[in-house]
Design a protein around this nucleic acid. Structure first.
Lengths: 126, 126, 126, 126
DNA sequence: GTGGTCTAGACCACG
DNA sequence: GTGGTCTAGACCACT
């Protein structure tokens, strides 16, 4: 079962996308594997304090992308081949890296400053 | 005059926020300076292919935040003290760095892998 | 024993309502009579390929409407006085006739066209 | 502009389907033609006493079926070729006739009784 | 208990 | 003013 213990809702981005990305990152990191059950709409909606339909929207998109299997009355579960995991991992990393590089460049920091900041933040020294 | 030459509309985020961020990053980078003129609403609207109301909304927020001075009949211009620029810069960098570190950690990459990917992307080797 | 031989599930309408209507129409037509036994929940559930809870819901409503008599341990059976049958018959016919007349009028056909189409369909010439 | 003056909400059937069918019947009857504007979400929702999203669902389906053209900021309008109108007309009539014939047959009335009832209702003598 | 659908209200970008 | 999207709550059929 995927654990949402360290999930926190952030502002700005749609909630269903935050949930979607959280699950994809968990799959890329190996924290959730093929066949693992997802929390039910009601359980997760109570846990996160959002409407069950918002959870369902995230799950439905995952199903359309072939990452989740849903049947009425049964729990939804992950559908993760190794190739799928690898593909998700690459998509997420490319997206994250490009966006941060664009943003920091435009903000006017040098490569060295950027790498230094990121390293400090990673180690909790910020 | 503020230059929007390398502004590109991205999906997902509200357009008025993208414009706000673009201007703030420019200020943090020094590309936008105290006293610089902003393009008129209709000029920028035509340039970006966006509705004038959306430009108006971004300008109004900038003014409410005290980053822009507007007088009727005159062009709006940036109002950027050194402290303001420094504050914006720190806010933007903290936001960007934290979000990318959170994301990449959750995706399951090591600090070394992350720094390597970012460096490669920065240098265009990706 | 009630016969569900020519019952077919249709989309759109809730299943328990389809079952209710099927039984009521049978009563109006005289195919279902006072004292006739109803199939047990599990038998009908298997026959129609429907969840037992759904059958249970239909039977419960029939009982609440006074059309079925249930005693624990014994089979449920129809409770149909002549007045009841007549009332059901009129309700069903009024409902069906009004809805089709409203619909066809609004679709812009004349009375003659409508009657002609219905006669053809009745005789299988459509 | 399509007129909803004689539209009445009925129970049982989903509201968006009732609206969808009402518009299709109007097109089949010639009451709404190619290029006619549809009432806006807000106007129609206020008129019918339902949520704007329910109206939008009906309009969106019509658009997916190619019967309506919608653009952000502009009014939606009907897209009705003669072939389309003819196809809709046939679909609606077939559906209506089949359902009423099935229903009345199962309710145990003869063809003559059925036609007589429908004629009486059509003429308001019921 | 589960997932699927319908209805509802607020916000956004746009003409 | 317009349509598009996100979030929310209730009901249905099913395991």
């Amino acid at each position: 079962m995927l654990d949402f213990g360290d999930f926190r809702l952030g502002g700005g981005e749609p909630i269903y996308l935050q949930i979607l990305l959280y699950i994809k990152r968990g799959a890329a990191a190996g924290a959730v594997r093929d066949g693992d059950e997802l929390p039910s709409r009601r359980v997760l909606s109570a846990l996160l304090g959002v409407n069950p339909n918002t959870i369902q929207k995230a799950y439905r998109i995952l199903e359309e992308e072939g990452l989740v299997s849903s049947r009425t009355g049964a729990k939804s579960c992950m559908l993760l081949s190794e190739e799928t995991v690898q593909r998700i991992r690459e998509e997420l990393l490319e997206r994250d890296v490009k966006s941060v590089v664009d943003a920091m460049r435009q903000t006017g920091v040098s490569k060295e400053q950027a790498l230094d900041l990121i390293e400090k933040c990673w180690e909790g020294r910020i």
